[in-house]
Design a protein around this nucleic acid. Structure first.
Lengths: 209, 209
DNA sequence: ATGTCATTGTGGACAGTGTACACATGCTCA
DNA sequence: TGAGCATGTGTACACTGTCCACAATGACAT
Protein backbone atom coordinates (compact mmCIF):
# COMPACT_ATOMS: atom_id res chain seq x y z
CA UNK A 1 0.00 0.00 0.00
CA UNK A 2 2.28 2.75 1.25
CA UNK A 3 5.84 2.06 0.28
CA UNK A 4 7.28 5.41 1.27
CA UNK A 5 10.57 4.94 -0.57
CA UNK A 6 11.35 2.61 -3.39
CA UNK A 7 14.60 1.76 -5.12
CA UNK A 8 13.54 1.65 -8.74
CA UNK A 9 12.72 4.78 -10.67
CA UNK A 10 9.63 3.09 -12.01
CA UNK A 11 7.03 2.25 -9.45
CA UNK A 12 5.53 -0.60 -11.39
CA UNK A 13 2.10 -0.64 -9.88
CA UNK A 14 1.40 3.01 -9.32
CA UNK A 15 -2.09 2.99 -10.69
CA UNK A 16 -3.20 0.08 -8.55
CA UNK A 17 -1.48 1.56 -5.52
CA UNK A 18 -3.14 4.92 -5.96
CA UNK A 19 -6.54 3.30 -6.24
CA UNK A 20 -5.92 1.16 -3.18
CA UNK A 21 -4.76 4.16 -1.19
CA UNK A 22 -7.73 6.11 -2.48
CA UNK A 23 -10.09 3.43 -1.26
CA UNK A 24 -8.48 3.59 2.15
CA UNK A 25 -8.91 7.35 2.24
CA UNK A 26 -12.52 7.06 1.10
CA UNK A 27 -13.15 4.54 3.85
CA UNK A 28 -12.92 7.26 6.43
CA UNK A 29 -14.21 10.54 5.13
CA UNK A 30 -15.85 9.56 1.89
CA UNK A 31 -15.29 11.15 -1.44
CA UNK A 32 -13.96 14.42 -0.09
CA UNK A 33 -11.22 12.59 1.77
CA UNK A 34 -9.76 11.23 -1.44
CA UNK A 35 -6.95 13.69 -1.88
CA UNK A 36 -4.66 13.31 -4.84
CA UNK A 37 -1.51 14.74 -3.32
CA UNK A 38 -1.88 12.73 -0.16
CA UNK A 39 -2.38 9.59 -2.22
CA UNK A 40 0.83 10.14 -4.15
CA UNK A 41 2.63 10.89 -0.91
CA UNK A 42 1.54 7.58 0.55
CA UNK A 43 2.58 5.86 -2.63
CA UNK A 44 6.02 7.43 -2.25
CA UNK A 45 5.81 9.33 -5.49
CA UNK A 46 5.65 12.93 -6.64
CA UNK A 47 2.21 14.54 -6.97
CA UNK A 48 2.34 14.77 -10.73
CA UNK A 49 3.07 11.10 -11.20
CA UNK A 50 -0.63 10.51 -10.69
CA UNK A 51 -1.36 12.36 -13.90
CA UNK A 52 0.31 9.61 -15.91
CA UNK A 53 -2.52 7.33 -14.82
CA UNK A 54 -5.50 9.60 -14.25
CA UNK A 55 -6.54 12.63 -16.24
CA UNK A 56 -7.54 14.37 -13.04
CA UNK A 57 -8.82 13.77 -9.53
CA UNK A 58 -12.27 12.95 -10.81
CA UNK A 59 -10.90 10.01 -12.75
CA UNK A 60 -9.18 8.64 -9.68
CA UNK A 61 -12.47 9.03 -7.88
CA UNK A 62 -14.20 6.96 -10.52
CA UNK A 63 -11.72 4.15 -10.07
CA UNK A 64 -12.14 4.26 -6.31
CA UNK A 65 -15.88 4.27 -6.75
CA UNK A 66 -15.71 1.15 -8.89
CA UNK A 67 -13.76 -0.72 -6.25
CA UNK A 68 -16.19 0.40 -3.57
CA UNK A 69 -19.09 -0.90 -5.65
CA UNK A 70 -17.36 -4.23 -5.83
CA UNK A 71 -17.12 -4.34 -2.05
CA UNK A 72 -20.79 -3.45 -1.83
CA UNK A 73 -21.57 -6.32 -4.18
CA UNK A 74 -19.77 -8.71 -1.86
CA UNK A 75 -21.80 -7.48 1.09
CA UNK A 76 -24.98 -8.02 -0.82
CA UNK A 77 -24.26 -11.60 -1.84
CA UNK A 78 -23.17 -12.34 1.72
CA UNK A 79 -26.49 -11.02 3.04
CA UNK A 80 -28.40 -13.08 0.51
CA UNK A 81 -26.54 -16.17 1.60
CA UNK A 82 -27.67 -15.64 5.18
CA UNK A 83 -31.08 -16.99 4.26
CA UNK A 84 -31.28 -20.75 4.08
CA UNK A 85 -33.19 -22.09 1.09
CA UNK A 86 -36.70 -23.11 2.08
CA UNK A 87 -37.54 -25.09 -1.01
CA UNK A 88 -40.33 -22.66 -1.84
CA UNK A 89 -39.26 -20.59 -4.81
CA UNK A 90 -41.45 -17.63 -3.90
CA UNK A 91 -40.18 -17.46 -0.34
CA UNK A 92 -36.59 -17.86 -1.43
CA UNK A 93 -36.97 -15.10 -3.97
CA UNK A 94 -38.48 -12.79 -1.40
CA UNK A 95 -35.73 -13.59 1.03
CA UNK A 96 -33.14 -12.83 -1.58
CA UNK A 97 -34.67 -9.44 -2.25
CA UNK A 98 -34.58 -8.75 1.45
CA UNK A 99 -30.98 -9.84 1.51
CA UNK A 100 -30.09 -7.43 -1.23
CA UNK A 101 -31.60 -4.55 0.68
CA UNK A 102 -30.19 -5.59 4.00
CA UNK A 103 -26.73 -6.04 2.55
CA UNK A 104 -26.85 -2.69 0.85
CA UNK A 105 -27.87 -0.97 4.05
CA UNK A 106 -25.40 -2.89 6.16
CA UNK A 107 -22.71 -1.67 3.82
CA UNK A 108 -23.96 1.89 4.20
CA UNK A 109 -23.91 1.58 7.97
CA UNK A 110 -20.58 -0.19 8.36
CA UNK A 111 -18.70 1.67 5.66
CA UNK A 112 -20.36 5.03 5.17
CA UNK A 113 -17.32 6.49 3.48
CA UNK A 114 -17.08 3.69 0.95
CA UNK A 115 -20.81 3.80 0.47
CA UNK A 116 -20.74 7.42 -0.55
CA UNK A 117 -17.75 6.82 -2.76
CA UNK A 118 -19.54 3.90 -4.37
CA UNK A 119 -22.88 5.48 -5.05
CA UNK A 120 -22.63 9.22 -5.16
CA UNK A 121 -19.93 9.60 -7.73
CA UNK A 122 -21.48 10.62 -11.04
CA UNK A 123 -21.49 7.76 -13.50
CA UNK A 124 -23.90 6.64 -16.14
CA UNK A 125 -26.24 3.72 -15.83
CA UNK A 126 -24.76 2.57 -19.12
CA UNK A 127 -21.60 1.62 -17.24
CA UNK A 128 -23.46 -0.17 -14.48
CA UNK A 129 -22.24 -3.51 -15.78
CA UNK A 130 -18.59 -2.60 -16.13
CA UNK A 131 -16.56 -5.42 -14.67
CA UNK A 132 -14.47 -3.01 -12.63
CA UNK A 133 -17.46 -2.59 -10.35
CA UNK A 134 -18.00 -6.29 -9.86
CA UNK A 135 -17.61 -8.21 -6.64
CA UNK A 136 -15.86 -11.50 -6.12
CA UNK A 137 -18.45 -13.43 -8.08
CA UNK A 138 -18.20 -11.14 -11.07
CA UNK A 139 -21.51 -9.36 -10.65
CA UNK A 140 -22.05 -5.67 -10.01
CA UNK A 141 -24.57 -4.53 -7.39
CA UNK A 142 -26.95 -3.60 -10.16
CA UNK A 143 -26.70 -7.03 -11.70
CA UNK A 144 -27.25 -8.75 -8.38
CA UNK A 145 -30.42 -6.77 -7.85
CA UNK A 146 -31.52 -7.57 -11.39
CA UNK A 147 -30.96 -11.27 -10.91
CA UNK A 148 -33.02 -11.31 -7.73
CA UNK A 149 -35.84 -9.47 -9.46
CA UNK A 150 -35.74 -12.04 -12.25
CA UNK A 151 -35.97 -14.75 -9.64
CA UNK A 152 -38.92 -12.97 -8.08
CA UNK A 153 -40.53 -12.82 -11.46
CA UNK A 154 -40.03 -16.49 -12.25
CA UNK A 155 -41.47 -17.43 -8.89
CA UNK A 156 -44.58 -15.51 -9.85
CA UNK A 157 -44.24 -13.01 -7.03
CA UNK A 158 -43.55 -10.04 -9.27
CA UNK A 159 -45.96 -9.57 -12.20
CA UNK A 160 -44.04 -9.63 -15.45
CA UNK A 161 -45.36 -6.28 -16.58
CA UNK A 162 -43.83 -4.66 -13.54
CA UNK A 163 -40.47 -6.26 -14.00
CA UNK A 164 -38.82 -3.78 -16.35
CA UNK A 165 -37.29 -0.92 -14.50
CA UNK A 166 -38.09 -2.43 -11.13
CA UNK A 167 -34.41 -2.16 -10.28
CA UNK A 168 -34.71 1.57 -10.12
CA UNK A 169 -37.64 1.52 -7.74
CA UNK A 170 -36.12 -0.90 -5.28
CA UNK A 171 -32.76 0.73 -5.55
CA UNK A 172 -34.11 4.22 -5.00
CA UNK A 173 -35.83 3.29 -1.78
CA UNK A 174 -32.89 1.57 -0.25
CA UNK A 175 -30.39 4.08 -1.51
CA UNK A 176 -32.44 6.93 -0.13
CA UNK A 177 -32.58 5.43 3.30
CA UNK A 178 -28.87 4.80 3.18
CA UNK A 179 -28.14 8.40 2.31
CA UNK A 180 -30.49 9.81 4.91
CA UNK A 181 -28.90 7.57 7.52
CA UNK A 182 -25.32 8.54 6.93
CA UNK A 183 -25.34 12.03 5.45
CA UNK A 184 -28.80 13.32 6.03
CA UNK A 185 -31.15 14.07 8.87
CA UNK A 186 -31.43 10.46 10.01
CA UNK A 187 -27.82 10.48 10.99
CA UNK A 188 -27.74 9.92 14.71
CA UNK A 189 -30.24 7.11 14.53
CA UNK A 190 -29.15 4.27 16.77
CA UNK A 191 -28.36 1.03 14.96
CA UNK A 192 -31.59 -0.39 16.38
CA UNK A 193 -33.72 2.44 15.01
CA UNK A 194 -31.95 2.16 11.70
CA UNK A 195 -32.56 -1.58 11.57
CA UNK A 196 -36.24 -1.24 12.35
CA UNK A 197 -36.65 1.43 9.73
CA UNK A 198 -34.75 -0.65 7.21
CA UNK A 199 -36.95 -3.69 7.71
CA UNK A 200 -40.09 -1.60 7.45
CA UNK A 201 -38.77 -0.04 4.28
CA UNK A 202 -38.12 -3.45 2.81
CA UNK A 203 -41.64 -4.50 3.76
CA UNK A 204 -42.93 -1.51 1.88
CA UNK A 205 -40.87 -2.26 -1.19
CA UNK A 206 -41.98 -5.85 -1.22
CA UNK A 207 -45.65 -4.88 -0.96
CA UNK A 208 -45.40 -2.06 -3.43
CA UNK A 209 -43.13 -3.40 -6.10
CA UNK B 1 -26.63 40.57 -3.49
CA UNK B 2 -23.13 41.54 -4.57
CA UNK B 3 -22.39 45.10 -3.60
CA UNK B 4 -18.74 45.10 -4.51
CA UNK B 5 -17.94 48.32 -2.67
CA UNK B 6 -19.79 49.91 0.16
CA UNK B 7 -19.32 53.24 1.89
CA UNK B 8 -19.83 52.32 5.51
CA UNK B 9 -17.24 50.34 7.39
CA UNK B 10 -19.99 48.12 8.75
CA UNK B 11 -21.78 46.06 6.19
CA UNK B 12 -24.98 45.82 8.14
CA UNK B 13 -26.39 42.67 6.62
CA UNK B 14 -23.32 40.60 6.05
CA UNK B 15 -24.72 37.40 7.42
CA UNK B 16 -27.84 37.54 5.27
CA UNK B 17 -25.79 38.52 2.24
CA UNK B 18 -23.36 35.66 2.69
CA UNK B 19 -26.19 33.18 2.97
CA UNK B 20 -27.90 34.59 -0.11
CA UNK B 21 -24.67 34.47 -2.09
CA UNK B 22 -24.07 30.97 -0.78
CA UNK B 23 -27.46 29.86 -2.03
CA UNK B 24 -26.64 31.28 -5.42
CA UNK B 25 -23.36 29.38 -5.51
CA UNK B 26 -25.07 26.20 -4.38
CA UNK B 27 -27.61 26.61 -7.14
CA UNK B 28 -25.02 25.74 -9.69
CA UNK B 29 -22.53 23.26 -8.37
CA UNK B 30 -24.11 22.14 -5.14
CA UNK B 31 -22.44 22.02 -1.80
CA UNK B 32 -18.91 21.95 -3.12
CA UNK B 33 -19.48 25.18 -4.99
CA UNK B 34 -20.18 27.06 -1.78
CA UNK B 35 -16.81 28.67 -1.32
CA UNK B 36 -16.25 30.92 1.62
CA UNK B 37 -13.68 33.25 0.12
CA UNK B 38 -15.65 33.70 -3.05
CA UNK B 39 -18.74 34.49 -1.04
CA UNK B 40 -16.99 37.23 0.91
CA UNK B 41 -15.56 38.56 -2.33
CA UNK B 42 -19.02 38.87 -3.82
CA UNK B 43 -20.21 40.53 -0.64
CA UNK B 44 -17.42 43.07 -1.02
CA UNK B 45 -15.77 42.14 2.22
CA UNK B 46 -12.53 40.57 3.38
CA UNK B 47 -12.42 36.78 3.73
CA UNK B 48 -12.17 36.83 7.48
CA UNK B 49 -15.26 38.94 7.94
CA UNK B 50 -17.26 35.75 7.44
CA UNK B 51 -15.85 34.36 10.65
CA UNK B 52 -17.72 36.99 12.64
CA UNK B 53 -20.94 35.31 11.56
CA UNK B 54 -20.04 31.67 11.01
CA UNK B 55 -17.69 29.51 13.03
CA UNK B 56 -16.47 27.89 9.83
CA UNK B 57 -17.51 26.94 6.33
CA UNK B 58 -19.66 24.12 7.59
CA UNK B 59 -21.81 26.54 9.53
CA UNK B 60 -22.37 28.65 6.44
CA UNK B 61 -23.31 25.48 4.63
CA UNK B 62 -25.92 24.71 7.26
CA UNK B 63 -27.51 28.11 6.80
CA UNK B 64 -27.54 27.68 3.04
CA UNK B 65 -29.03 24.24 3.48
CA UNK B 66 -31.85 25.63 5.60
CA UNK B 67 -32.76 28.17 2.94
CA UNK B 68 -32.68 25.48 0.27
CA UNK B 69 -35.04 23.35 2.32
CA UNK B 70 -37.42 26.25 2.49
CA UNK B 71 -37.40 26.52 -1.29
CA UNK B 72 -38.03 22.79 -1.53
CA UNK B 73 -40.99 23.19 0.80
CA UNK B 74 -42.46 25.80 -1.52
CA UNK B 75 -42.13 23.45 -4.48
CA UNK B 76 -43.88 20.74 -2.58
CA UNK B 77 -46.89 22.82 -1.58
CA UNK B 78 -47.10 24.12 -5.15
CA UNK B 79 -47.20 20.56 -6.47
CA UNK B 80 -49.88 19.61 -3.97
CA UNK B 81 -51.96 22.57 -5.06
CA UNK B 82 -51.90 21.30 -8.64
CA UNK B 83 -54.50 18.70 -7.76
CA UNK B 84 -58.02 20.02 -7.57
CA UNK B 85 -60.05 18.80 -4.61
CA UNK B 86 -62.36 15.99 -5.63
CA UNK B 87 -64.52 15.98 -2.54
CA UNK B 88 -63.43 12.45 -1.72
CA UNK B 89 -61.11 12.60 1.27
CA UNK B 90 -59.27 9.42 0.35
CA UNK B 91 -58.56 10.53 -3.20
CA UNK B 92 -57.53 13.98 -2.09
CA UNK B 93 -55.15 12.54 0.46
CA UNK B 94 -53.61 10.23 -2.11
CA UNK B 95 -53.24 13.10 -4.52
CA UNK B 96 -51.55 15.17 -1.89
CA UNK B 97 -49.05 12.43 -1.21
CA UNK B 98 -48.36 12.24 -4.90
CA UNK B 99 -47.93 15.97 -4.94
CA UNK B 100 -45.35 15.82 -2.18
CA UNK B 101 -43.31 13.30 -4.09
CA UNK B 102 -43.69 15.01 -7.41
CA UNK B 103 -42.73 18.37 -5.96
CA UNK B 104 -39.72 16.93 -4.22
CA UNK B 105 -38.51 15.31 -7.41
CA UNK B 106 -39.29 18.35 -9.53
CA UNK B 107 -37.11 20.32 -7.17
CA UNK B 108 -34.34 17.77 -7.54
CA UNK B 109 -34.57 17.93 -11.31
CA UNK B 110 -34.86 21.70 -11.69
CA UNK B 111 -32.43 22.67 -8.97
CA UNK B 112 -30.01 19.82 -8.48
CA UNK B 113 -27.49 22.03 -6.76
CA UNK B 114 -29.96 23.37 -4.24
CA UNK B 115 -31.37 19.89 -3.77
CA UNK B 116 -28.03 18.52 -2.72
CA UNK B 117 -27.40 21.51 -0.52
CA UNK B 118 -30.80 21.02 1.07
CA UNK B 119 -30.69 17.33 1.76
CA UNK B 120 -27.15 16.06 1.90
CA UNK B 121 -25.76 18.40 4.48
CA UNK B 122 -25.47 16.54 7.76
CA UNK B 123 -28.10 17.68 10.22
CA UNK B 124 -30.12 15.89 12.83
CA UNK B 125 -33.74 14.93 12.50
CA UNK B 126 -34.21 16.73 15.79
CA UNK B 127 -33.81 20.01 13.92
CA UNK B 128 -36.18 19.01 11.13
CA UNK B 129 -38.78 21.44 12.41
CA UNK B 130 -36.49 24.42 12.82
CA UNK B 131 -38.27 27.40 11.33
CA UNK B 132 -35.20 28.40 9.33
CA UNK B 133 -35.98 25.49 7.02
CA UNK B 134 -39.59 26.46 6.50
CA UNK B 135 -41.16 27.58 3.27
CA UNK B 136 -43.49 30.50 2.74
CA UNK B 137 -46.32 28.88 4.68
CA UNK B 138 -44.13 28.17 7.69
CA UNK B 139 -43.81 24.43 7.27
CA UNK B 140 -40.64 22.48 6.64
CA UNK B 141 -40.56 19.73 4.01
CA UNK B 142 -40.66 17.16 6.76
CA UNK B 143 -43.73 18.75 8.30
CA UNK B 144 -45.50 18.93 4.96
CA UNK B 145 -44.96 15.23 4.43
CA UNK B 146 -46.14 14.53 7.95
CA UNK B 147 -49.32 16.52 7.46
CA UNK B 148 -50.12 14.66 4.27
CA UNK B 149 -49.60 11.34 5.99
CA UNK B 150 -51.93 12.43 8.77
CA UNK B 151 -54.48 13.31 6.14
CA UNK B 152 -53.99 9.90 4.57
CA UNK B 153 -54.53 8.35 7.96
CA UNK B 154 -57.71 10.25 8.72
CA UNK B 155 -59.11 9.31 5.34
CA UNK B 156 -58.59 5.70 6.30
CA UNK B 157 -56.14 5.03 3.50
CA UNK B 158 -53.17 4.47 5.75
CA UNK B 159 -53.71 2.08 8.67
CA UNK B 160 -53.01 3.86 11.92
CA UNK B 161 -50.48 1.30 13.08
CA UNK B 162 -48.36 2.08 10.06
CA UNK B 163 -48.50 5.80 10.52
CA UNK B 164 -45.60 6.29 12.91
CA UNK B 165 -42.32 6.59 11.07
CA UNK B 166 -44.03 6.46 7.70
CA UNK B 167 -42.32 9.75 6.86
CA UNK B 168 -39.02 7.99 6.73
CA UNK B 169 -40.21 5.33 4.33
CA UNK B 170 -41.80 7.70 1.86
CA UNK B 171 -38.98 10.13 2.16
CA UNK B 172 -36.30 7.50 1.62
CA UNK B 173 -37.82 6.30 -1.61
CA UNK B 174 -38.22 9.69 -3.14
CA UNK B 175 -34.93 10.98 -1.85
CA UNK B 176 -33.13 7.98 -3.22
CA UNK B 177 -34.55 8.45 -6.67
CA UNK B 178 -33.63 12.11 -6.54
CA UNK B 179 -30.05 11.36 -5.63
CA UNK B 180 -29.68 8.64 -8.24
CA UNK B 181 -31.08 10.98 -10.86
CA UNK B 182 -28.76 13.88 -10.24
CA UNK B 183 -25.59 12.47 -8.73
CA UNK B 184 -25.78 8.79 -9.35
CA UNK B 185 -26.01 6.35 -12.19
CA UNK B 186 -29.44 7.53 -13.36
CA UNK B 187 -27.95 10.84 -14.32
CA UNK B 188 -28.42 11.18 -18.03
CA UNK B 189 -32.00 10.00 -17.87
CA UNK B 190 -34.13 12.15 -20.11
CA UNK B 191 -36.80 14.15 -18.32
CA UNK B 192 -39.38 11.75 -19.76
CA UNK B 193 -37.65 8.67 -18.39
CA UNK B 194 -37.22 10.39 -15.07
CA UNK B 195 -40.90 11.31 -14.96
CA UNK B 196 -42.04 7.80 -15.77
CA UNK B 197 -39.77 6.34 -13.14
CA UNK B 198 -40.94 8.91 -10.62
CA UNK B 199 -44.59 8.09 -11.16
CA UNK B 200 -43.93 4.38 -10.90
CA UNK B 201 -41.99 4.95 -7.71
CA UNK B 202 -44.88 6.90 -6.26
CA UNK B 203 -47.22 4.09 -7.23
CA UNK B 204 -45.02 1.71 -5.35
CA UNK B 205 -44.89 3.88 -2.27
CA UNK B 206 -48.64 4.29 -2.27
CA UNK B 207 -49.18 0.55 -2.53
CA UNK B 208 -46.52 -0.35 -0.05
CA UNK B 209 -46.86 2.25 2.64
C1' DA C 1 -19.49 65.08 26.27
C1' DT C 2 -16.33 61.54 27.17
C1' DG C 3 -14.28 57.27 27.81
C1' DT C 4 -14.86 52.24 27.82
C1' DC C 5 -15.84 48.15 25.54
C1' DA C 6 -17.82 44.61 22.82
C1' DT C 7 -18.83 43.95 17.91
C1' DT C 8 -17.49 43.74 13.33
C1' DG C 9 -14.25 44.25 9.58
C1' DT C 10 -9.03 44.25 7.76
C1' DG C 11 -4.27 42.55 6.61
C1' DG C 12 -0.98 39.30 6.53
C1' DA C 13 0.33 34.62 6.98
C1' DC C 14 0.39 29.48 6.67
C1' DA C 15 -0.42 24.95 5.21
C1' DG C 16 -2.68 22.54 1.96
C1' DT C 17 -4.96 21.59 -2.57
C1' DG C 18 -5.39 20.49 -7.97
C1' DT C 19 -3.00 21.01 -11.97
C1' DA C 20 0.10 22.97 -15.94
C1' DC C 21 4.78 22.99 -18.09
C1' DA C 22 9.34 21.65 -18.87
C1' DC C 23 12.61 18.21 -17.86
C1' DA C 24 14.77 13.55 -16.43
C1' DT C 25 14.89 8.67 -16.50
C1' DG C 26 14.78 4.19 -18.08
C1' DC C 27 12.35 0.07 -20.69
C1' DT C 28 11.57 -1.79 -25.27
C1' DC C 29 12.47 -2.76 -29.70
C1' DA C 30 14.54 -1.83 -34.34
C1' DT D 1 23.67 0.53 -29.85
C1' DG D 2 20.45 3.97 -30.28
C1' DA D 3 15.57 6.05 -30.77
C1' DG D 4 11.41 6.76 -28.89
C1' DC D 5 7.79 6.33 -25.73
C1' DA D 6 6.02 5.69 -21.15
C1' DT D 7 6.63 7.09 -16.67
C1' DG D 8 8.31 9.87 -12.75
C1' DT D 9 10.38 14.67 -11.01
C1' DG D 10 10.65 19.82 -10.04
C1' DT D 11 9.00 24.10 -10.08
C1' DA D 12 5.28 27.13 -10.20
C1' DC D 13 0.57 29.21 -9.94
C1' DA D 14 -3.82 30.21 -8.35
C1' DC D 15 -6.85 28.98 -5.06
C1' DT D 16 -8.79 27.32 -0.63
C1' DG D 17 -10.00 27.43 4.77
C1' DT D 18 -8.46 29.28 8.84
C1' DC D 19 -5.37 31.58 12.51
C1' DC D 20 -3.56 35.81 14.61
C1' DA D 21 -2.98 40.58 15.67
C1' DC D 22 -4.88 44.97 14.71
C1' DA D 23 -8.37 48.84 13.37
C1' DA D 24 -12.78 51.02 12.97
C1' DT D 25 -17.13 51.65 14.76
C1' DG D 26 -21.30 52.19 17.46
C1' DA D 27 -23.62 51.76 22.12
C1' DC D 28 -23.70 52.84 26.73
C1' DA D 29 -22.26 54.32 31.41
C1' DT D 30 -20.31 58.00 33.50
Amino acid sequence: MSEAHRTTYRHGELRETLVAVGVEMARNGGTDAVVLREATRRAGVSPNAAYRHFADRQELLLAVSAVAQGIAADRMVAAIAEFEPTGDAATDARNSLRGVGTGYLAFARDEPGLFRAAFSVPDDLANAHSSAKAGADGRTPFQILGDVLDQLCEAGVLPADRRVGAELLAWSSVHGLGMLLIDGPLRGFTPEMAEVTAQRLLDMVQRGL
